[in-house]
Every structure is written in structure tokens, then in C-alpha cells.
Design a protein around this nucleic acid. Structure first.
Lengths: 147, 147
DNA sequence: CAACAACCTGGAGTGCACTCCAGGTCAAGC
DNA sequence: GCTTGACCTGGAGTGCACTCCAGGTTGTTG
């Protein structure tokens, strides 16, 4: 009884996770990954549960959780199921930050869209002519030009 | 005929824009801000159009446009209305990236929510007991524990 | 079993976006 | 007019998250 499930070389792992080999080693050094299996010769062999875990890390990094916090999360995981309440707490706090990030981006997107629309309007109203100008009245500036 | 509109000191400007004085000076050095008015003694006085412009910069930074790109945008603004098509183009490209960012965050948020829900389920099903464990079947790992 | 790619380690280097500092100048209130 | 806090400049320093390197070992392929 064996068939020890898929073992991935560093290159395969990197490829599978969309993360560089160097970053993988860096995460390991930082204590974000638990001890990775090795071949007799000392080369790493990643398991599919390693893949799953790195995917979680990637999700957290995508959402700008600092490495320091990910380390804390990793430690809580190492502590086993007793630490689940703390892990849940950490994720709930982070979740709130992600929601804020999305809101901030959405707001910025609206601003950008507005600006694009303004440019479009200018380009439409003065297709060839180049004498007229300006978009926002940039209150205060006198030599106001479109930004 | 004057009433030269509001002039802000560096501290007021920083406060108004939600950006530090140092960052404001840094942006100026980097060519993101056009020459700022000065008092006879050489101290900066920001106009409300400076505020408007810095708000745009802030919006772009919020959405992770690199300083280098903001510099390019600032240059296009300096070139006047002839450069509006290029400015619009730059913004459209950036807009697409912002949309991608939002999508990525949204996806990550779903993952986080899923994880939180899993933890909640564990905590609910085993309120005091600590013998049962695990969440995801972490395929492959044998000593699988909840992550 | 030779050759060559992939991997190993510890440590140094990079790029980005600020942020801070020293040593001096300016300006507003008393 | 003097004090005190805000401001000036050029340049150095910081924190973060990687990323690269040298010099050596492993593992696979013909």
C-alpha cells in the first residue's frame, strides 16, 4: 500500500503555483512553509498539500497581507486545531481590509472613468481644431489646462 | 482684480491631500508636480489646482500605477492638449489593469470567505471536543490538518 | 559513465516608494 | 527684535518582498 501521491520537483512546483523557485525557497526560510520532503540527495519534493497551502499563501499575498502576518498565520496552522479561532479571527480582520481595498479601487476606477470620459468629450467636440481646450475648470489655477 | 484664491502651506496641503510633506516634495523632485509657487522667502504655496492634480496622482497611486508611469502622464499633461489622445490611451490601459486587480481581489475574497466558513463550521460542529479535525481533505498529505 | 541540466546553500543585491536627517532659513506672535 | 515652529535643501536611510549569485552537489539521459 503506497502510491505516495504526486511529488513535484521545485520547477514543477513553481510552475504549478505560479510562483518562482526563489520565492518558494524564500517562503520556506521565512517559516511560511513547513519542512518540505527531500530526496535522499537533499532535493525538495513538494506534495499536493504543499500546493494547496502555497495557493492559500498566494491568495493572501494577492490581497496584500504582509509576509509577517502570513508567518503568524502559518504558526497558528502549525499549532493545530486549537488555534482555529485565532486563525478565523485573523482571516476576518484581513477580509475587512480586502473589502476596503476593493472599495478604494472601485472608487478610483470611477474617477479614472470620469477622466477618460472627459478626454473623449474633448476629442469629440474638437476633432481637428486645436484652439479650444480644457476639461475641469481647475478652480484657482489661471493658466488652467486639461489634466 | 485679484483675490488670488486659496494658497496652502505645505502642512495644509499635506493635510488636505492625505499625503505627507515628504512625499509631496518627493513627487515634485520626481517631476510629478509642476513648479509650485513660492513665497518671497522661498517657501511653497500650493494652489487649489495643485490639490486637484495631487488628488489625481493619489488616485493613480491607489491603483498601483508606478511612479514612472505617473511621470509619463505628468509629462503628457505638460505637453498640453495635443497629448490628450495619449493621456486617454494611458488611462484606458491603466483602467484595464484596475479592473483586473478588482477581479483578482474579488476572487481572493471568495477564497477567504470560504476558508472562514470552513472554520466556522468546524467550530460549530465541535464546540468543546477537540478530537475531530480537518477542513479540506488536503489530498496527498497524510497527517492532514486544517489550514 | 559522462555530460549537462536542475538543484543545493548562505549571503548579497535589487527596485520601489517613500521617509528621515543635519544644518540652515523664514515667518508669525508676543 | 526675539523666540519658536514651520520650512528649506541635498542626500542618506528604511522596509519590504523578492531576486540573483557563486561555488558546489544531484539526477537523468544517451
Amino acid at each position: 500500500m503506497s502510491d505516495v501521491a504526486e511529488q513535484l520537483s521545485p520547477a514543477e512546483m513553481a510552475d504549478r503555483c505560479g510562483i518562482s523557485i526563489d520565492t518558494l525557497r524564500y517562503y520556506e526560510r521565512e517559516g511560511l512553509l513547513d519542512t518540505i520532503e527531500r530526496t535522499a540527495g537533499g532535493q525538495r519534493r513538494y506534495s499536493s498539500s504543499d500546493v494547496a497551502w502555497v495557493m492559500i499563501l498566494r491568495c493572501l499575498r494577492t490581497t496584500a497581507l504582509p509576509i509577517r502576518e502570513m508567518k503568524r498565520f502559518a504558526e497558528l496552522v502549525r499549532q493545530g486545531d486549537d488555534a482555529i479561532p485565532e486563525r478565523a479571527q485573523l482571516l476576518r480582520e484581513h477580509r475587512a481590509e480586502v473589502v476596503d481595498q476593493i472599495a478604494a479601487l472601485q472608487e478610483a476606477l470611477d474617477t479614472i472613468d470620469h477622466k477618460i470620459a472627459t478626454y473623449a468629450a474633448i476629442l469629440e467636440s474638437t476633432p481637428v481644431v486645436d484652439t479650444l481646450s480644457d476639461t475641469t475648470p481647475t478652480l484657482g489655477g489661471k493658466g488652467a489646462r486639461a489634466t
